[in-house]
Simulated scan of single mutants.
Amino acid sequence: MDEDARNRAARYRMDPQGETDSTPPDEEATPPPRRRPEDQTLWVDQQIRAAMARGEFDDLPYAGKPLPHIDTAAEPDWWLKRFIEREQITGVLPEALQLRKDDTALDEQLDALRSERAVREAVEDFNRRIVAARRQLQGGPPVVTQLRDVEVEVAAWRERRGRGRPTDDVPPPPSSTPGAIRRAWDRLRRRG
Rank of each mutant, 00 (worst) to 15 (best):
P76C: 06
W157D: 00
P173R: 02
I181S: 14
V119W: 05
D168W: 01
D111L: 03
I130L: 12
D107P: 09
S175K: 04
V144T: 15
P76T: 03
I130V: 15
T177D: 12
P174S: 04
L137V: 10
K81Q: 14
R82N: 10
A112V: 02
R148H: 09
Q109I: 05
R128C: 07
T90C: 10
E116A: 00
V144G: 14
E87D: 13
V92K: 09
Q138F: 08
D169H: 06
D107Y: 08
E95Q: 06
P94A: 15
L147R: 14
E151K: 04
R117T: 05
K101Q: 15
Q88L: 02
T72L: 11
P142M: 08
H69P: 09
Q136P: 03
E87H: 15
Q146L: 11
D102S: 07
V150M: 00
P94R: 14
T145V: 14
P94C: 09
E108H: 04
D102C: 04
G162L: 03
V144C: 10
S175V: 03
E151P: 01
A105I: 11
P178Y: 07
S115G: 02
V152R: 11
R128D: 13
Q138N: 14
T72S: 14
E87L: 14
R158S: 03
A156Y: 05
F83T: 11
G162A: 07
R161G: 00
P141Q: 09
E116R: 00
A118E: 07
A155C: 01
R160I: 00
R86E: 14
A155R: 05
R160M: 01
D111W: 02
V131P: 03
F83D: 05
R117G: 03
D186G: 03
R100H: 09
L93N: 09
T90Q: 14
T167S: 11
R165C: 01
I89C: 05
L137F: 10
E85P: 01
P172N: 08
L147F: 10
P141K: 07
G91V: 09
S176V: 07
A180H: 02
T145W: 11
A112P: 01
E75H: 13
A155M: 04
F126G: 04
A96Y: 12
P174H: 06
G162F: 05
A156R: 09
A96D: 13
S176L: 07
